[in-house]
Every structure is written in C-alpha cells, then in structure tokens.
Write a protein that binds this DNA or RNA. Structure first.
Lengths: 133, 133
DNA sequence: TGCAACCCTGCCGCCAGCGGCAAGGTCAAG
DNA sequence: CTTGACCTTGCCGCTGGCGGCAGGGTTGCA
C-alpha cells in the first residue's frame, strides 16, 4: 500500500466538503435530512463514493436556486445524474413550479417596492435639489 | 368642546390591528423594533392616532416586498407622507440610496436564482435535472 | 512519543418575524 | 358582581440552514 495513490473510490467528509465547496457540517446536515447517505469506515468515519460529489453538487444547485431541503427531497431519485431512467416525478415538477412562482412573486414585489422607493426619493428631493454624494 | 364628537383620533392596538390586517402581537413587535410609536392611555393601554394606519400599511407593504424590519427602519421618515414638510436629511438620503442599492442587489440575486431554477426545469423536462460536471 | 490534522456525537446559537401562552390589570354591559 | 372582551409584560417556540463549541477518538508523520 505504500506509495499507492488511490485516485478514486472513497473520500472522507472533509475531502467531499472541499470537493463540493461546502463544509463538513453542512454535509452532516444533509445526511441528517436524508439527502445523502454514507458508509462508515471501521473507525466510524463517514466515507463516500465519488457519486456523492455529483449528488451534493445537485443539492447545492437546487438550494441556490431557492429550494428548501424539503423540496430537494422530492428530487432524490434524480440526484444521481446517471439515472437517465429516472425522470423527475410529477411531484418534483410541481414543487419546482411552485417554487418558481414564489420566486417570481417575490421578485415582482421587491421590484415594485424599489420603484416606489425610487419615486419617493425623487419626490423628496424634487423641490430642493440637493446633491447627495 | 361640549358635544363635539371627535371621530376617533385615537385607536387602541386591537383596532389598529384590524384596520391594517395584522395582529396586536405584530404591532408590539414593530414598536419594539422602533418602527412605530404609541402614546399611552392612563390605564397603560397603547393608543395610536390615525396616521399609524398609513404607517403600518407602508411597513407591511415593504415587509411583503421582502424587506427586513431593519431595512424598513431606514425608510421611516418617508412612511408618514411628511416628506414635503420635513425633507429627509442628507444622511437619511444617503442611507436610503444605499438601501436602494442593496435592494437592487437582492433583486438581482433572486432573479438569478429564478433563472437557474427555470433552466433546471428546462433540463428536467429533457430527462434529468441538469448535467453535472 | 508527541503533535497536528482529521474525524465523531450532541447540543446550543443565530437571524426574522412573529405565534402563543402565562399571569395579571381594566372596563362596560348585564 | 360577574362575565368577557380587551389590554399589559415577559418569555419560550418555531422554521431553515447551518456555525460553533465541547469533549472525546484516530491517524500520520517527525
């Protein structure tokens, strides 16, 4: 074993964290939420195969897109990437569409608020033109 | 003063809550956050003048738009419609403009999230969530 | 042999915006 | 005089996605 570099196969939590741009803490959190699973080494350490990288990246992607961990649950069958045979369920699509609607709503509301604020500011400074550095 | 009926210049918290579509609990919360203020009746009850209705509605509007209570703080001088009589200070304007920028940033971030989700969905309808790595 | 770098579990904290409850005071109507 | 609607303060709880720490164990390397 000396000098043998294991290219693939099993990584521990820290390495997976580095590989996916997250933290060990977050990964344990995902596991507790049932989004990823791990084998255990004889010493109790979590070990992951390389598919975990894809999976975690997918999870992070969906989270960054505004889904919750619960939402991501729905997509579990699709998270392994190589599953061409597992198209997203109707349920998954529904969740995603709902989330999309929520995001659109929020964006619209905030944009409206911004426009209002902008107008108010313009009015506030309308009479007295004050240079606001 | 005899016989003069002042059509409710003052309301108590419950009525204000009903008038603004919120709860007494929330109003106390806003007060504790420094967003609204109240007089006190001799018995200790909070009493509000009718401008409070406008103010609270504005607060709720901004909150619904995704602002935080802290954000709303900054816009306090604008919430009463008093702007013409009491133009905001340079300092206030500066802060308001900063907040405007923050708002724009937030909108941009959420828009990006939405686009990502949309893209993911588009990929999903093609068979899988998204090509990873 | 001793250290530094990992890993483990478990639990508390944080932010935001309240909800809800306890334990009491106040007031008008019946 | 009692009921019930309303008000007060204060504090704990909840959701979401972790951060961070305590208090351990395990490894690799000089």
């Amino acid at each position: 074993m000396i000098g043998v570099v294991r290219e693939v196969g099993w990584v521990r939590i820290g390495e997976l964290a580095r590989a996916t741009g997250t933290t060990a803490r977050a990964l344990r959190h995902y596991e507790q939420a049932g989004l990823i699973c791990s084998q255990r080494a004889p010493n109790g350490y979590r070990i992951y195969d390389e598919r975990a990288v894809v999976r975690v990246c997918n999870i992070r992607y969906l989270l960054a897109a505004g889904l919750t961990l619960d939402d991501v649950q729905v997509f579990l069958p699709c998270l392994d990437g190589d599953v061409a045979a597992a198209p997203p369920s109707d349920k998954g699509l529904r969740v995603a569409l709902e989330r999309l609607a929520v995001l659109n709503e929020r964006i619209a509301a905030q944009t409206e608020a911004r426009d209002r604020l902008e107008a108010a500011l313009r009015q506030a400074t309308g009479g007295r033109i004050r240079p606001v550095a």
